[in-house]
Design a protein around this nucleic acid. Structure first.
Lengths: 197, 197
DNA sequence: CAACTTATAGAACGATCGTTCTATCTTGGT
DNA sequence: ACCAAGATAGAACGATCGTTCTATAAGTTG
């Protein structure tokens, strides 16, 4: 691989992320990707054997490693609340970092081949299980049923993933303040505790 | 309009809801809709002038009236907490009732014409404002900033809309129990109150 | 039955899709 | 300088897309 051509493959992935996030998988054509990178259609196929491979390459360098990154954000020495807070904060930051990829990942999963769907589902299940486990630790004294813990895990994921949609639409708060708000909501809801307390 | 042909238009809308929800707007063709209804392509165009009109017809008979239905679920005589609880429960029920439509509505909004987008945004804003207003009432004593109230409204919407995704994947709880769980989470989060209290 | 409106089907249009093929150009190693 | 490997472009394939046109069948109304 020559230096002159370094990053050419990554450019394609970058453009594909943009377009997939904006227009969806079915709504994005190989020609679109070629056009905004100033390349030819066949050049795209030189780097990726087909459209779905491009999709999977996106997942590979972003969402694929997310469960591990979330796990390593939680320090074993801390208490359950600190660990959970760290998990949520890491998850929010990861979602920010890979905003478009996560959007693609969670929204457009339907049109994949069975093999692609399996990868998608596996990662989603890893993250869900991570939350279920931590919620179990957090609520140990309250003996919640597994079904209830599952519902709670989905609720937390809903808050975090929904964040991707309105992230841009809030003025007047810094990113850190928004994250504080979200963590506070996940812990105490609307009524459980005063915002400042 | 003859009786023999009554409901033929509605059949097309019904099929389109199914397919749009399963495969997205760009991922669904007029020919797909014609095929599963056993009609011809041109017959679809006899009832709808183009693809986007079909989309808007779906919104019209489902999501369009949702803000009003949510408003009318809240009894003015009740207190702020009862009113908010009624709002969330009505929203959950409406989301269940029009599961596919809401999924389409919130997910696939990007590929519409400017006119279609405007309708979409208007309804979403109506619902968001409804929540912001009620959250304002609910937290009157705590003087939360408008930006913070906005974040809280988005969080609640995230929980409810995310519910559409995992609705099928929880065994061991009835629909009412799940709704209780969700309302409890919105009010008190993970730690704010005991589940049984 | 005749006239008119509605419902339907089938063929076709141009555009675009994912993909493949072939040919040229660039680069790095010898 | 030569050559193999990688990078690129362009043309073309068959399939499918949204849409339109034309023609026929069915139903309603006189």
């Amino acid at each position: 691989m020559s230096k002159r051509y370094a990053g050419r493959r990554e450019d394609l992935v970058e453009a594909a992320v943009d377009l997939f996030a904006a227009n969806g998988y079915a709504g994005t054509s190989i020609r679109d990707i070629a056009k905004i990178t100033g390349r030819s259609v066949s050049n795209v196929y030189h780097y990726f054997k087909d459209k779905e491979s491009l999709w999977l390459a996106i997942l590979e360098y972003s969402v694929q490693g997310m469960p591990d990154r979330l796990r390593s954000a939680m320090k074993p020495a801390d208490g359950a609340e600190q660990r959970f807070s760290a998990l949520v904060r890491a998850h929010l930051q990861e979602s920010m970092r890979h905003r478009r990829e996560v959007k693609i990942f969670f929204i457009d999963e339907e049109r994949l081949s069975p093999g692609g769907k399996r990868i998608n589902k596996r990662i989603q299940k890893e993250i869900l299980d991570l939350y279920r486990e931590q919620i179990g630790e957090l609520l140990k004294a309250r003996h919640v049923s597994p079904a209830a813990a599952r519902v709670l895990a989905f609720n937390v994921l809903g808050v975090i993933n929904w964040y991707l949609r309105w992230q841009d639409h809030v003025a007047g708060l810094s990113v850190e303040e928004i994250h504080d708000q979200i963590v506070g909501f996940v812990f105490y809801g609307l009524l459980g505790k005063l915002p400042g307390g």
